[in-house]
């Protein structure tokens, strides 16, 4: 038996989405059994089956981000903080003196 990952795409612009997995002895039976297991109620109009053994995987070790390189994590918070400081400084300037 081989394990297959099942991807379904609904009609329209939506992309393929992972629907689940199944075991089958070969490609043809995988297609037949996937139809009965995952597409009984029109869940998709196109199906991809990928033998899990053929998937090129990147594991979590490999994908661990480099936290020692903060310049790669520019989420805009530094700029936002600087602008906020500038705005409050500017409004302090224009306030009438007591």
């Amino acid at each position: 038996m081989r394990t297959y990952e099942v991807f379904l795409k609904r009609a329209g612009k939506e992309e393929f989405r992972h629907a689940g997995a199944l075991d089958a002895p070969d490609d043809d039976m995988a297609r037949l059994l996937a139809r009965e297991s995952y597409v009984r109620r029109g869940e998709g109009s196109l199906m991809w089956l990928v033998a899990r053994a053929n998937i090129v995987e990147g594991d979590s070790d490999f994908l661990e981000p480099n936290f020692d390189k903060p310049h790669r994590h520019n989420d805009g918070s530094n700029i936002a903080a600087r602008r906020k400081r500038q705005r409050s400084a500017a409004s302090a300037d224009t306030e009438p003196s007591a």
């Binding site: 038996m1 199944l22 075991d23 037949l32 059994l33 009965e36 297991s37």
Partner: peptide, 12 residues
């Protein structure tokens, strides 16, 4: 005999 076949046969 196995889960997938169980589902398939029952849907038949």
């Amino acid at each position: 005999p196995f889960l997938e076949e169980d589902l398939a046969f029952c849907s038949i």
